[in-house]
Design a protein around this nucleic acid. Structure first.
Lengths: 380, 380
DNA sequence: ACGGATTGGTTTGTAATCTAGACAAACAAA
DNA sequence: TTTGTTTGTCTAGATTACAAACCAATCCGT
């Protein structure tokens, strides 16, 4: 069933844009083509309908090449002709090309909630077409993995259009191939989640850390102008996802973004991890609820204090907060922002902004969908 | 004199591997070739002498392709045949190919010292062949730029082998094209330093922030196994350079690594910037000297506390310290490391290491040379 | 000594793909 | 109607990586 290609996620050919932890890859004959194809597609995703000549100007490719790529994409149904542009001035009217949002669908899974797995059928534009949830009921290990796989298969069955793939946002540490190295809450250790899910649905499967994919989603679907951002996800715990220049930062042990147990207040409250004053003890959702609104300012400042060195080191411009709306209020946000500004040099701090996620509760779900778009189409 | 190609650093064609802040670039016909050529060259830089067949195995290219690239590199004199491998076993003996360290030279400038500019003639292996220094004598603005240009020209004149280019490590904020946006100590604002230097020496000129290029040098010349590291440079001020997966992180305003004025101790000493408790007030070299060895532990901990969130967010493995040896002692280092470990989760902290730069005083100088190797040959 | 096996490197032909230049189509303004 | 402009396509040419076959050089066992 599976091919002999070692390292392949599942029975399919390796995903076109799946970047592994390889030191550096060779460039083959088809690589330029793939790159340019993705470039054209991405340009249309971002700028909306464009003519072939527009694409050539935007990408620095020739009209011949964009035209050729366009016919390829047209044949695959990924884009369509939208008629001629009106009100153009002199010259032959341009025929506009646009992405067909429902040319392909993705199945997105959000496993970050402790109680239930959430899943959705998402189109290329990030629109949710259908939803499912499955109560976890305390399942762990293989049972939990099977539950996720069944959920994916269930939704995949309802798809009336070709599936691009399945994207999964999982808690814990996930390696570039999608193996969940460590997810204590789900009892997963070195679990080949992509393999298990792919056995249930016959399309490419991509798995990433929940906060990481949320960051990807925020970048791709929330109209973020920048190509870099830090997404902070507050829930039972606290996690972060970092995208720099369009690329997810995974880190040495693929544990980048695991900031929940950074100590921000050595004399603070005890944490489940055995230490005291971890960031989670200051700003995890349950703690924020328990302490009430009055403590929001102090909590926000704690976050800002932890982020200040990060923002300075990376010269970040954009930080996005996501989590339950009852605890994430403007007081919290502005306190965090103020703390960052107080603690970084103005040249950096003046340009930082913190905003709430525009994807809301669906951040991980849409991020998982975005992961598929990134890996399969190169759109990020 | 200059070409019409907007954005070109100088009269030369754009450096083969100069990455600008562009969103995404098209891939042209010669791009795969350049990529693979760099890959082959880099493989030889790292692994030492290899046969064409070895290169094919290491790069996943075919023997034909590596052979072809090898003849090209041989013709340019960048590599040479080193005779056949002995003691090989069955089969035709391999002819080893190795980089010729002095096939090209680079002129490296270190402008980070407040008193004098340092320069060196460096070969491809990072060996310093000649040195010059020029007392700055309080020069700023155009006069300082001219001093740097003269120094470069002076050394370039002594080169008895082809020059690959000039690399400059400058203090302040430097954009990807090499323009020094802001360097208060030298009175530079939006200064086209590459242009000025290129007017004096007729080779490509590349300029980067001092701490940034130091990080690059540490990665490329100090035998760092990892492709990611954070280099902390302690001197009059404190700066950092971050390399992730072989790529320098520049940040939104190209100010990444400017951590000297991160506030680490709000109740601490006043800083020249107007705030109190900046990292510089805790660990800049003059302060460390003034306070004596007894304060090293506390200072080291301050650094570690600032780095803990960064290390967690990036899941960094390697932090490198450079600066005057009289203040950077083992006490400081281990205090910083201990603070990081105390404040990060074990899964991350256990794998972090802090070490002293293996390039010593020449870190910026060799980093500037490495910058040229990176931009001109793709070796990083 | 000699054939077989093994590994290294090259020759030759092929497929992919980008570019340059030219050209037809379609339209606006004079 | 003429002129000029823009769009999109066609054709020819250049690069370049790869596959297959081949020669070269060495070891090994008999």
């Amino acid at each position: 069933m599976t091919t002999g290609d070692a390292g392949t996620t599942n029975g399919h050919a390796r995903a076109p844009f799946a970047r592994r932890g390889e030191r550096q890859r060779k460039a083959g004959p088809g690589d330029t083509r793939r790159h340019n194809r993705a470039l054209v597609l991405q340009t249309m995703f971002r700028h909306g309908p464009l003519s072939r000549a527009d694409l050539a100007r935007a990408t620095n490719l020739t009209r011949v090449t964009t035209s050729d790529l366009a016919t390829e994409l047209l044949a695959e149904g990924l884009i369509e002709e939208l008629g001629t542009r009106v009100d153009q001035g002199v010259g032959k009217p341009a025929t506009l090309l646009g992405v067909v949002p429902d040319a392909r669908l993705t199945v997105a899974l959000d496993l970050s909630d402790g109680e239930r797995f959430r899943a959705a059928l998402v189109d290329l534009g990030g629109k949710v077409l259908d939803r499912r949830t499955a109560e976890r009921g305390g399942r762990t290990g293989a049972a939990a993995a099977d539950l996720a796989a069944d959920l994916a298969a269930d939704l995949a069955g309802t798809a009336d259009r070709p599936l691009l793939g399945v994207g999964v946002g999982s808690p814990g540490v996930v390696d570039p191939a999608g193996t969940v190295l460590e997810a204590p809450n789900l009892g997963w250790h070195d679990l080949d989640l992509p393999g298990r899910v792919a056995a249930a649905v016959d399309v490419p499967v991509h798995v990433g850390n929940d906060a990481n994919v949320a960051a990807l989603g925020e970048l791709g679907l929330a109209g973020a102008a920048e190509r870099s951002l830090l997404a902070i996800k507050i829930g039972q715990g606290v996690g972060a996802g970092l995208v720099l220049d369009g690329h997810l930062v995974l880190g040495d042990r693929f544990a980048a973004g695991e900031i929940g147990h950074v100590v921000v207040d050595p004399g603070g409250e005890p944490c489940a991890c055995g230490r005291t004053g971890c960031l989670e003890t200051a700003i995890a959702a349950p703690r924020l609820r328990r302490r009430g609104p009055a403590a929001r300012t102090a909590a926000g400042r704690r976050l800002g204090e932890a982020l200040a060195p990060v923002v300075s080191t990376l010269n970040l411009r954009e930080v996005v907060l996501s989590g339950p709306l009852d605890v994430l209020d403007e007081t919290f946000r502005s306190a965090a922002l103020a703390a960052i500004r107080d603690r970084t040099m103005p040249a950096v701090g003046d340009h930082v902004d913190i905003r709430f996620s525009s994807l809301g509760e669906d951040d991980v779900l849409l991020g998982a969908a975005m992961l598929v778009l990134d890996r399969e189409l190169g759109v990020a």
